[in-house]
Structure formats: structure tokens, C-alpha cells
Amino acid sequence: MAEIRIKGVAKDFGTFTALHDVDLTIADREFMVLLGASGCGKTTLLRIIAGLETATKGEVWIGDRRVDQLPPRERGIAMVFQNYAVFPHLTVFENIAFGLRMKRMPQAEVTRRVTRTAELMHIEQLLKRYSGQLSGGQRQRVAVARALAMEPEVILMDEPLSNLDALLRLEMRAELKGVLAGSNTTTIYVTHDQVEAMSLADRISVMNGGKIVQAAGPVEVYRNPAARFVGSFIGNPPMNFLSASPAGAGQWQVGGQVFAGPEAPAAEFAIRPEDLHPSDTGLPAEVRVVEPLGPHTLVTATVAGQPFRAVIDSTLVPRPGDVLHLAPMADRIRWFNPETQKAL
């Protein structure tokens, strides 16, 4: 059992607060992605779980052990670093065997585990090489193999794919998902890439300003953002937000149209760009830029003077200056409190 519980963890660097009282529980064998822009505290949180950073306050539990005062080696974790951290003075074999040797495992077991994980990561023919003779992608595989060989309860990954080129990243992403699904580990994976997060995660914790804004499954995070930030951070292009003025109980006027919404003193209207379809009565959008992207066309426009994007079928070719009428799908409309920025 390697359930991870983070209780009230905070971290200050001098006067800068990197993490504010973070609480998070990660279930055994769950794949949890910490997602956020750079500086949001996601890497700091990961490093606190790893023991590479000491929390200013709070507790970290792995299974039924409180680990926040333990050194990394006693936490039962393995980690994959952003720049791989493959030891340059050791062969690939010795890199993968490093942790096992530290545990004084018998040679036969070391060989067995190294061979098995090397095969799993398709690097069995590289075992005699040094890191300097490997490509970025191969180093990445060694780093993952080294972590897997430990058969840890928890694997921590710090942006492991961000140094790879786009194509390789796609390939490694699918492979990582397969390999980790086959192991019995709890995984915490840090990334700033929302596509990576969506594709890998059982659950995503979206972080902003040292806080977890929302922790939920990928579709939930996408469809029902708990806060304005989540909607604007996830999705490409991001969610559209339009100001709304009250038009009776539970009725809101947005861009000259009236929509049914929550009963609240104030609200902001939100809709994803792909949840719009051209109609005669929709929101009037004045087209500014049209970008045909192949499968669909991205239209940048303004609605009532506010920026607005729509993804429409590529058969439709509006021109700048045209006014498109875009009707939002009723069940996809979301409302946010303009004060607290939380979902209504």
C-alpha cells in the first residue's frame, strides 16, 4: 500500500511562498499529474515528497509512514529527473544497477532486474554504453529503467519528457503509460504540458500560485473547471469568458443574448471554443483573424468588445470583418463568480 497523503504542506523560500498549505491524497497505484505553469510550486511539491526539499511545515505520509523527516533513501521512492541525471561515469548497466547495489542485492538478482527493466524500456542493446554515447531519448529510457529497477512503491517524475523533441515525446508518452500501468507503483508526474497531463493521468492536480486549484480526473478538469484559472489554463485554445449582466432571477444577459444561469449576485459566462456552432441567433462575433488548421478552423473574434475564440468546421470560411452568430451548446455553458473566480 502506497497511498500518499500530503497534509498542510507549505514552503517558503525567504520571503517568497512557493506552497500554501497544500492538502492532497493520492491513492495507491494512482497516476497523479501535477499540472501548472512554471513557478506554480509543482516541482517544489514533488521535491518535498522526494525529500530533496524540506517543507517549512506540514506532513508527508507514504502508506502508514510519516516520511517528511526522512532522507530520500528511506522513503521508498524512485525519481526520474528532467535532465535524466544519468551518471556519466557509469555504464548504462551500472546506472540501472546503482540503486540495487546500494541495497547490497546479490549479483544474480541485480543482473535479473537490470535485464528485465532494460528489456521493458528497449535498451537491452545499450547496457555497455556510457551516457555520453546515448541520445536524449535513450538517456530518458535509462533514467526510467533505473527508477523501475528499484521496484519502488512510488515513482516521482519531474517533467521527464520536456527535453525531448515533439515526435519522441509523443512516442515516449504512450510507452511510459504502458510501462507504468504494468507496474504496481503510485506515480506522481510533474508537467506543464496539458496534453501530456490529460493523456497520462488518472487524476490531475492543477496548481497555481502555490495552491492546488482542482484535483480531478482529466475529463472532469476539462469539462467542469473548478475555477476560472483551470478553464483558462487547460484547453487549446482556452475557454472563452464573457461578462454577464443580471436579467431577472437566474437569467443573464451575455452579448445581447439571454441565458439561463445560476442565481447569484454576479456571474461570468464561460464556454469552450469548440462548444459553439454557427446559428442565426447565437452570440454576435465580429471576426478578426481566421486560421484554417486543417480539420477545423480557428476564428479569433470579439463579442461585445471582449476577445472570443471559436473552433468551427473548416467548410465555413468567414473573412475578417464578418459577423458570425455562434450559439453555445446549452449543457456546456459554465458560470464563474467574478469575485472569487470559483465555479458557480
Binding site: A50, G51, L52, P71, P72, R73, I77, A78, M79, F81, Q82, N83, A85, F87, P88, F98, G99, M102, K103, R146, M150, L156
Partner: peptide
């Protein structure tokens, strides 16, 4: 990171 990797691997 090389040192940190070593710590996480039991050093």
C-alpha cells in the same frame, strides 16, 4: 541532480 538521483537511489 546527479547527487539527488543518487540520494533517491539509496545513497
Amino acid at each position: 541532480e546527479l547527487e539527488e538521483a543518487a540520494w533517491t537511489l539509496g545513497c
